[in-house]
Nucleic acid binder design. Structure first.
Lengths: 255, 255
DNA sequence: CATTGTTCGTTTGTTGGACAATTGAAATAT
DNA sequence: ATATTTCAATTGTCCAACAAACGAACAATG
């Protein structure tokens, strides 16, 4: 017979795994304050420094959080925490615009369709406000990209599907720089914004009517327009995304 | 007027950010060996402990790696590293089977369709082998779930879209425990496996013919079957997934 | 009375130095 | 040439200490 390889883990990893298990098992719930580093070190029978290394790991996966200098508490990992890392992975793997677009071509129309049956009045109002703000931004000559991004997030949230939200987030984060180049380009800056806001408006109307198929179809057209604009601007669909174009930075932590 | 919040970061975070920037800027490339902890500490002018905490952060995001006890080197973050964390986030947010299924209903048929135009001979052979192995497992009464998971991964890889691969990975990881319960259930264990392998076979044929629409359609049917089985087994679509059902564990690291 | 300064105990952030365990490679013996 | 045995380098862990920041309570100031 033969023994399997032993899973020998460094102590700091054992520490983080142990705390993680308690959280996932529900014995520690979101919001609970964890013991201090010194107490944890005493309880585990290790040095405080080892505990700290374990905590760094947990922080990174979003399971625990600390407002700098203050006590540690259990948190629910939010997709916002994970999306930047996914985006980075895609950048480093030289993912192309075409790949991102293909995925969005599946997820965005589907999000619109699901949203049609589930959207509530509050979010519908937010979407309407977003469309108006976009029109104002166009006449004012301001950037409409943050508004566009916000529009799509609102639709995805209205779809009431957190798995969908999680799947689309890193993809659309990477669209950001591409969008900027697109709308600065002379060939697309003329009609592009008008077509965009027209599509947005139609989608909102369809959502208000609860018409899933119309919502899906206009979102699909909207995405096709996006790709066409990319073509028209002379950008290469199969080129890796700009590695320097980092995703929008998170606000500095409270301290 | 008002000042913006100061971005005061702890030293270990500055350390990890600094190294991260070098990697993302391409001045450090995958495979490069980093200086030793002591050297890093000297260069940055901080203690080795501080450097170590920074390293823990980088390791966690997959940018650097170390085979236990050995030197640190730059690595390309792989989605395989990130998917488990996404799955965990979904579990903690009490994502339901319905949400996962909706996303898969978009991504899996689309993956099949894309694969139809892009699959190569080698992967096609792997898929054929997978289907045969699945049939053998059925007659032998063994579990077909690992084979099913492998089948879908193969199709997704054949689609030649890394963003798609990344988006679907955490979702299907969470299907694993649901699949197990499904195929152990008396009502589905009788015909379920036969229908599954039939669908798989049709999909492979369509891929071999390069027929995207047939591939998409059979994958869609396959996914509908999955959901129907879930219903038939009397499981609740809108119940949160089992938090104890952890995603399959990674093999222990070499040491 | 609202704001500002002071004090104090608690907890995190950082430093110093130390040593065991492991690894990779060089040196030695077979 | 192949094992085996050193040996220096490097990581993993520990111990002890102190600076920095925070929360709260309270005094001082205008």
């Amino acid at each position: 017979m033969a023994f399997a390889r032993l899973a020998i883990l460094p102590t700091y990893k054992v520490v983080s795994d142990t705390i993680e298990r308690e959280i996932l098992a529900g014995r520690l719930n979101a919001g609970d304050i964890l013991p201090t580093e010194t107490e944890l070190a005493d309880q585990f029978g290790v040095t405080r420094h080892t505990v700290r290394e374990g905590i760094r790991i947990l922080e990174q996966s979003g399971l625990v959080r600390r407002e700098a200098g203050r006590r540690l508490y259990v948190a629910e990992p939010h997709y916002g925490d994970l999306a930047p890392r996914l985006s980075r992975a895609m950048v480093m793997q030289r993912v192309t615009f075409r790949e991102l677009w293909e995925v969005s071509m599946d997820l965005e129309p589907s999000a619109a369709a699901h949203a049609a049956g589930r959207i509530d009045a509050s979010r519908l109002a937010q979407l309407r406000a977003n469309v108006e703000a976009t029109e104002e931004a166009i006449t004012a000559g301001a950037s409409i990209i943050p508004l566009d991004v916000a529009f799509h997030i609102l639709v995805a949230e209205a779809a009431g599907n957190r798995a969908l939200l999680l799947a689309r987030e890193p993809v659309t984060q990477l669209f950001y720089p591409a969008l900027e180049r697109l709308f600065r380009h002379p060939k697309t800056s003329a009609v592009g914004p008008r077509r965009l806001v027209e599509a947005h408006r139609r989608i909102v109307e369809a959502l208000a009517d609860g018409d899933a198929e119309v919502a899906r179809e206009w979102m699909r057209k909207h995405m096709v327009d996006f790709r066409r604009g990319y073509d028209t601007a002379g950008l290469d669909l199969d080129e890796a995304l700009d590695p320097t174009a980092a995703p929008p930075a998170a606000p500095p932590p409270r301290r």
